[in-house]
Design a protein around this nucleic acid. Structure first.
Length: 132
RNA sequence: CAAGUAAAUCGCCUUAUCGAACCAAACUUGUUUUGGUUAGGAAAGUCCGAACACCGGAGUGCAAACAUAGUGGCUAACAGCCACCAGCCGUGAGGUUAGGAAAAGUGCAACAGAAAGUAUGUACAGGUUAUGCUGUAGUGAAACCAGGUAAACUCUAUGUGGUGCAAUGUCAUGUAUACCAACGUUUGAGCGCGGCACGUGCGAUUGUUGGAGGGUAGGCAGCUAGAAUGUAUUGGUAACAAUGCAUCCAGAUAAAUGAUAAGGGCUUUUUAAUUUUUAAUUAGAAAGUACAGAAUUCGGCUUAUAGAUUUGUUUAAAUA
């Protein structure tokens, strides 16, 4: 997997996003919250990821754009270290739940923590699902 | 010089690494390669005016509601812009104005004043038997004759259908089936023919196929070559118009136009040194580098904006 984040890796389907929020599980490391769900994609992409910032805390479009860009960048550069070993396809939605404008370093560190937590959590759950 | 004043322009740059979207070409037809393009002056507020689309009426008049309001011009249109007149502000350059009508009617009016109008007080004088009456004084912008106010109602003139690209059109996976047709199934309720049975016709139910309808997820069109931009000439005081030449300049949709690092500008503060005091130059340090992100498209208006630049123009008094 390369350090890319193109059209096919973006979570776009409205249907899937609704499903994600109703059925998905979540891990959170401040200031992020990641909702995830196991699915199968028609175009055989391993992961699809979306990014979201609340309009409630950031009223200006410029600020929202900036934060989303930082998040996408952090995802793009760090996903290879965590997700290359995972074979099951997942849909992700990463939410920014803080209320201050972050710096890039801050975003990257938090994102790393978030992914670590995710990789620790997921295998257990899959085992649980199989047993029960 | 300094302080204004009016108008216009710009609004960080370079390099490296890793990326995103769209378009074109190529072939090895791909999550390929190569090339090109990729946010603003306000993209913002959504306040006016249009284009375009659909709905309604499809004609005319009146009324209501809303908007506009000096005169003339510009414009596709406008509540916009330009010129001129008038009032007000400023020494001035200049700024600013909801600048139609008070002899149609209704209302309102601070302070002062007895009273701002279903009034007639006080003092003095005149007059009278006396009162009513007449004059003067005092308040105020205005005292019975009217005036002010229409960013009060109102009147006059002019204009105005509604909803908005989530408009609208089109393709249509899947799902469900009140619809229609054909064929078929059955422990086939019930009904008709018949005295009853068999039989036969209709048929609730159910299956398959086809059609029609509906229009969800999603795709495509609308979707960017235009009242376009730049430039020159001509006409016009100007807004603006005409003509010639050149150019193609974002099209995303959980929403691209980026991230990081290094260096350099610019501004402010501060330290040191030098020079002719104010100040300037050089070197170092610290901080800052705005407002803000297209979403159908144009013309305006309004609001936000670190800092920089250019041009025209004004300066009374005081001080040097």
């Amino acid at each position: 997997m390369d350090k890319t984040y193109n059209k096919h890796e973006k979570l776009k389907s409205k249907k899937l996003i609704d499903q994600l929020f109703t059925e998905g599980k979540s891990v959170s490391v401040y200031p992020f919250r990641m909702v995830y769900l196991e699915t199968i994609f028609e175009d055989h992409v391993p992961f699809k990821t979306g990014v979201s910032v609340s309009k409630k805390y950031f009223k200006k479009a410029v600020d929202r754009n900036r934060i989303k860009r930082l998040m996408r960048e952090a995802y793009r550069l760090n996903k290879t270290t965590y997700f290359n070993n995972i074979t099951t396809p997942y849909a992700f939605m990463i939410l920014y739940i803080g209320n201050t404008k972050p710096t890039y370093n801050h975003v990257e560190q938090s994102m790393n923590k978030l992914f670590k937590k995710f990789t620790n959590v997921t295998p257990k759950q899959t085992i649980d699902e199989k047993t029960t």
